[in-house]
Design a protein around this nucleic acid. Structure first.
Lengths: 334, 334
DNA sequence: GTGAAAGCGCTAACAG
DNA sequence: CTGTTAGCGCTTTCAC
């Protein structure tokens, strides 16, 4: 079914040289004369010949493919990262195979196996765990957003936001806004990103002398609107009072805001709310959300840079990069 | 750099048979005994052997890769389609290479060439033009959302929403809401999706006996918030009065809503607004948007089904599929 | 500067 | 049922 493309063989015949020479010309490997080069190049141009990367990949044991593992491409924050990855990779002549895991470990394992079969040159985990398949060959890998659970080599490439600082900024803003009974709502899977945000928040609480009330620390299994909606709704019904809420993501904040609104709780006068990520909903929500901004684009850029360098076999000086975050004040805080 | 995986050769040695037999076992091609099968399978299991798809692809002239061309993965509507594509493809043992074109034809051509080099088995264009590279081999292809410009074979697979009806529903709703001076804001590139929406809207206008005022028909080069914001702002300043606005996408509606709000124009009492797509912002915007819902998921599912069938060489009975749309009433219409 | 030939990992005739 | 062999398109020694 797939149409037959013409091969290096035909090009070699058409230009009256051997395939070896054509290959050299294509790869700028020298050892050919100016004239042959021109001739070959013109034939290539004329016939719109495109070298078969699959064959090259087989021969060189290096496809030009990078696998990207992401929980959900539909999540804007991840999509923004993926977009940058794709753009940067393409510029360097790599293609990106995207795999959505939906946070499902089982699925992640299958994807990994699949990527292995595709002989990918490298791997990018966005907010994912590296699956623990025993003989998981050491592909050049970079982790974005979430640190791998397992203890890993010192030179593991990790790119993440300064989540501790993000949590801290959020907690501090809430405290300075006068909140004293502060709730949090976090992803219950408590990967490092969530964990560290929570740590930062705790630090801010300590500094402000605000007690951490266990009954106000919500955990949700899913990271979306509905989970927060229900969880906060439950909290409200249990008559726990609170005047501040730190949400692990903007969408969690959206869900919370919806419940709050329905229960007649006014934001920010009754309760101040802070999100995380700064995706577009934070700007355009009915009540624009005060949030912690992460630089998704920078993450994507950096990831490709480091991955490519690692693939070249270069030693990465600082494999663990922590990117700055920023508090963006909008309408959910006073 | 890429780690060396073990090959069919080693597996064959390990299990004391020829590579041919191993291959047969792997591919369920019969012609081997129950015992050899078990032995080979157990070796494969034990060593976690994964056949190299690159080599197989080379030999069979059919990679297990499908190329996806999409303007912008960051656009939720497209992301939702891509997600379904990826999930469905993976289920059938295909991987998806995502290429963002940012609506740039030049870039699209490069991507296509690249995919050609990767020897993809098929192509999915989401809202894209098939580039007009002359010797563009006939890869099995499906178009989603936007019809290719060029005249194409009768059996071209196209999956799109019933945009005419969508535009019609929007126009009708606006008219029934009492609007008489109705503006539109559309993508100026006027691909078929936008074009047909506009046609439907015109039809509704005619039916309602509402004149189409050229000065109220806005075109924007980009499909985002800012473009609409500025365009509508300009319209407002020019003192053209209008009481209805049909937007080509929800994000266009968002931008319009923002300007309207800033100029003290109340929605929906002064102006009714309708969007298109029904992405999440339509639900969660400060003013939930009345919009035309498209079924992105269904598009993705259908696309994979038809693409796979085409790749199998099957003849597709109805290659042009038009999916139903639905008016979702929210707060921007009375 | 150029070509012949081997081989990447796999599949598909073709023999037996 | 099983093995031998050729070859997919390309790169890469190794000769010349």
């Amino acid at each position: 079914m797939t149409p037959k493309e013409l091969s290096i063989k035909q090009i070699s015949e058409l230009s009256g040289v051997s395939t070896a020479t054509v290959s050299r010309v294509i790869n700028h490997n020298g050892r050919f004369s100016k004239e042959t080069e021109e001739r070959v190049l013109s034939v290539i141009e004329q016939y719109q010949y495109v070298p078969n990367m699959v064959a090259r990949g087989l021969r060189r044991n290096a496809s030009q493919i990078v696998g990207i593992i992401v929980p959900d491409i539909t999540n804007e924050f991840f999509a923004r990262i993926v977009l940058r990855l794709q753009i940067n990779l393409f510029e360097k002549n790599f293609s990106a195979v995207i795999c959505n895991t939906n946070e499902n470990e089982q699925l992640e394992v299958s994807h990994l196996q699949f990527l292995r079969a595709q002989n990918v040159s490298g791997l990018v985990f966005i907010s994912g765990n590296p699956s623990h398949t025993q003989p998981n060959p050491n592909y050049p890998t970079v982790f974005i957003d979430r640190r791998p659970k397992d203890v890993m080599a010192k030179d593991t490439i990790i790119i993440e936001s300064d989540n501790v600082r993000g949590g801290y900024l959020a907690g501090k803003a809430l405290a300075e806004g006068g909140a004293r009974r502060i709730a949090t709502i976090m992803d219950s899977r408590m990967h490092t990103a969530g964990e560290t945000r929570y740590q930062g928040w705790k630090k801010a609480m300590e500094e402000a002398g605000i007690p951490i009330l266990p009954e106000l620390q919500l955990k949700v299994p899913l990271v979306g609107f509905n989970a927060a909606y229900e969880s906060v709704s439950h909290l409200l019904k249990s008559r726990q009072s609170f005047d501040g809420l730190f949400c692990g993501t903007d969408w969690l904040a959206m869900g919370a805001l919806a419940t709050l609104h329905e229960h007649g709780v006014h934001v920010p006068s009754d309760v101040s709310v802070i999100g995380f990520d700064d995706v577009s909903i934070a700007t355009f929500s009915s009540k624009p959300i005060t949030t912690i901004r992460q630089d998704a684009e920078r993450m994507g850029d950096l990831a490709v840079e480091l991955l490519l360098r690692r693939m070249e076999g270069e030693k990465i000086d600082r494999p663990h990069r922590v990117l700055g975050v920023e508090l963006v004040r909008r309408s959910t805080t006073g």
